[in-house]
Nucleic acid binder design. Structure first.
Length: 729
DNA sequence: GCAATTTACTTTTTT
DNA sequence: AGTAAATTGC
């Protein structure tokens, strides 16, 4: 195997295959390269690919790495076990579920499901939500679970006013998850620990299987992840973790930076390799990033350097307000696209909170610059989508009470709160789930016959589909159950902008199922639901799309762009403060550092003197992080001094791609409608549901291509061309 | 039990 | 400002 293109430290990280290894990989130091080469190297040393376990932070990172490895070593890569902690252990749990009192078709509760379960418990315990905030309880429970604290040990570890109540709710919460044959995200890490600790044979099996373990983004692992790694690597001791303590940004999710700081102590005889040469950024960008991160007290000593040129100075831009900030960035992008031959995909606009995206969207639409947003309201968390998924979940897991409660009266079948509380009584008496309890409802006095019938016909409907699940293909099955529920009809008849949107989303869901079964022919409904729950927005982000990327600083971790804008650098926003809690300042600084180090060629740090929050304008002061930046690497700009030499018309011409001048960096977009004509900005189109309209904006390529269409009735819609089936007029 | 209207709350970041 | 929850009237 040729390792010639690696530097000395990288080579060492790749070839030190025996025993524990910690690779402290500075930003842009070739971390992914090292991981992929290390795996390829292991296989070249006659190690069976099926014996390698590689854990990543996102599914996207896993898929990309697998692809790169396949390019290096071919189809052997298919035998690797790669994925996020959550998805990898979710799969193991499907196999081993009976050993810990679950079934292989257990449900995974996302944070919304888990919150609604907590609300149900509060209600049943007669605790007012004004007295105890369910969200607070949820985060307390999750924090405890991330630290591997069981309900029994709860109060011993936390002291506070309602902690005794939280303990009782936590106990009940775990009890009900078990009764529902469901696990939350935290359980996907905790249950494997329980499994391994109580079943030594199972632990041995996986220790033997996974002789070589690799972990990416180790700085963001939590206590249970650490413990899982400890258990699994205990046989072979061959564990290699890669991370950068300066980029640890998930403390709020339970990540414990001590895992990486203490690695060499926890895993005896661990080798430490430092990757300190940065290949990504200019000296200016690195200078800015370094001068800020230096203020953090807790970190592994390292010296990040680069042979890259000094490059442009980093711009610090003072703006009047958030709209001005958005307009400035939009113009800057336009100018750079014209003068420096950048294309939309070379830009990223980063912000601390998702809510900040709106003003950028507005400006980019006006400037006819294609963009794509990562995050926000996720598709699979939308109400109508989750409702359909709840039907599917209940089908394969009849114990799933949360799914049952979601859909028992949606669409409306005359079953209200009173009827449900009757059923709850039956379920309690018989120690069954709500769905199972319907079988016994006839025996009960005091329940209206009509209501009994309503429940029973719901049960029969679900049973009917359960009986035929094998006879259909996955997408036919989902399609027919959606028809049975009749929600498409309901949304269409309601005929409001909102309901038509929901209609489109259901269509998109059907298409997603279709696509899933096409690319995974032997996977089942359980697999689909599993994937859908554990997928993140960044996993879906098509970086091949030629559009400006808008996302949070958190989502940007692990990515790189030629031009980066870090926006909203104001006290209270970045660093973000919720209360007077200054404890997380170092983490906010790391977040700023992560943002800076995404940039390859240019970086602009902006702040606004006034910012709209909750509809009101608030005066802002610039972030302390800006003041921490070494002046030698920056130039200052503000809106008052702004003058443009570029003519408006020319900007519009080039960016919209409309005129005859063909610009190499602005691709022409193909239409995915039946006619396959060229769709451009300004094209008149027809949509089945929304009627006629004009294309205002285009983004993305191929399957992920999107258009913003302004319809005649005066509203705008973001449409996936693949699904929307627009007709060109 | 349901739809329409009013009110409350949101903004941390995500598997 | 925009959405979800809560309340009201039918």
């Amino acid at each position: 195997m040729n390792l010639g293109n690696l530097n000395q430290a990288q080579k060492e990280a790749v070839t030190s295959i025996d025993g524990p290894v910690l690779v402290v990989a500075g930003a842009g130091s070739g971390k992914t390269l090292v991981l992929t080469y290390r795996i390829a190297y292991l296989i070249s040393q006659q190690i069976d690919a099926s014996r390698i376990l590689a854990l990543t932070f996102t599914n996207k990172a896993a898929n990309e790495m697998k692809e790169r490895i396949r390019n290096l070593i071919g189809s052997k890569a298919d035998y690797l076990t790669m994925g996020t902690f959550h998805s990898t252990f979710a799969k193991i749990l499907r196999i081993e579920a009976p050993k810990i009192s679950f079934t292989p078709s257990y449900s995974i509760y996302d944070t919304d499901d888990s919150l609604s379960l907590i609300k149900n418990i509060l209600q049943d315990f007669d605790i007012s939500e004004n007295f105890i905030n369910p969200r607070v309880v949820q985060s307390k429970i999750s924090n405890a679970k991330n630290k591997m604290i069981k309900p029994i040990d709860y109060v011993n570890n936390f002291f506070g006013m309602n902690e005794d109540k939280v303990k009782i709710i936590y106990e009940e919460y775990q009890k009900r998850l078990l009764l529902s044959n469901a696990m939350d995200f935290d359980d996907l890490l905790l249950k494997p620990i329980e499994l391994f600790e109580n079943h030594n044979d199972v632990l041995k099996k996986y220790q033997n299987k996974f002789n070589y373990i690799l972990v990416d983004e180790y700085q963001d692992t939590n206590t249970s992840q650490y413990y899982l790694l400890k258990l699994l690597s205990d046989g072979s001791k061959n564990i290699c973790v890669v991370g950068d303590d300066a980029q640890s940004i998930y403390k709020w999710r339970g990540a414990d930076i001590r895992n990486i700081l203490d690695f060499t102590r926890d895993f005896s005889n661990a080798k430490l390799v430092r990757l300190e040469q940065n290949y990504r950024s200019t000296k200016s960008i690195l200078g800015v990033a370094g001068s800020v991160i230096r203020r953090n007290a807790n970190q592994i000593e390292k010296n990040l350097w680069t042979q890259n040129p000094v490059g442009e100075k980093v711009e610090i831009r003072e703006c009047i307000d958030d709209r001005d900030e958005a307009n400035y960035i939009c113009k800057e992008i336009t100018i750079r696209m014209i003068s420096k031959k950048y294309s939309p995909k070379d830009f990223a606009i980063l912000y601390r909170t998702n809510a900040q995206s709106r003003s950028f969207e507005e400006s980019l639409i006006r400037g006819t610059i294609p963009y794509s947003i990562v995050g926000g309201v996720e598709f699979y968390k939308r109400k109508e989508v989750k409702d359909v998924l709840a039907y599917l979940r209940l089908l394969i897991n009849p114990k799933d009470n949360e799914s049952f409660l979601r859909i028992i009266n949606f669409p409306s079948r005359g079953i209200g709160d009173i009827s449900i509380s009757h059923l709850k009584k039956v379920a309690n008496d018989k120690n069954l789930s709500l769905f199972e309890a319907i079988d016994f409802i006839r025996e009960y006095e005091g329940i209206n016959d009509q209501i009994k019938k309503n429940f029973i016909s719901f049960r029969d409907m679900i049973q009917k589909y359960k009986a035929v699940i094998e006879k259909f293909s996955l997408s036919e099955f989902v399609r027919s159950i959606i028809d049975e529920i009749g929600i498409l009809k309901i949304f269409k008849e309601e005929n409001t902008e909102d309901s038509l949107n929901r209609y489109e989303n259901i269509i998109q869901l059907i298409n997603a199922v279709q696509e899933f079964s096409k690319s995974n022919p032997h996977k089942t409904l359980v697999d689909f639901l599993n994937d859908v729950t554990l997928i993140s927005e960044i996993d879906n982000w098509a970086d091949k799309a030629n559009s400006v990327t808008l996302m949070t600083l958190h989502s940007a971790k692990g990515l790189e762009f030629k031009n980066v804008f870090i926006t909203g650098c104001e006290e209270g926003l970045l660093p973000l403060t919720r209360d007077s809690n200054t404890d997380d300042l170092e983490e906010e600084r790391r977040l700023f550092y992560v943002g800076c180090t995404r940039a390859k060629e240019s970086l602009c740090v902006s702040f606004a003197r006034n910012r709209n929050r909750f509809g009101n304008l608030y005066p802002q002061t610039r972030s302390r992080f800006i003041d921490e930046i070494d002046d030698n690497f920056v130039e200052y700009g503000s809106t008052q001094l702004l003058k443009f030499s570029v003519k408006r018309k020319k900007i519009r011409e080039i960016v919209s791609g409309e005129p005859k001048i063909s610009h190499p960096h602005m691709p022409s977009y193909e239409d995915y409608s039946q006619e396959n004509k060229i769709l451009t900005i300004g094209s008149k189109v027809q949509h089945d549901v929304f009627g006629n309209g004009v294309v205002r904006q285009l983004s993305g390529f191929g399957d992920s291509m999107k258009a913003v269409v302004e319809f005649e009735e005066g509203f705008q819609k973001h449409l996936m061309l693949k699904f929307a089936k627009l007709k060109l007029l």
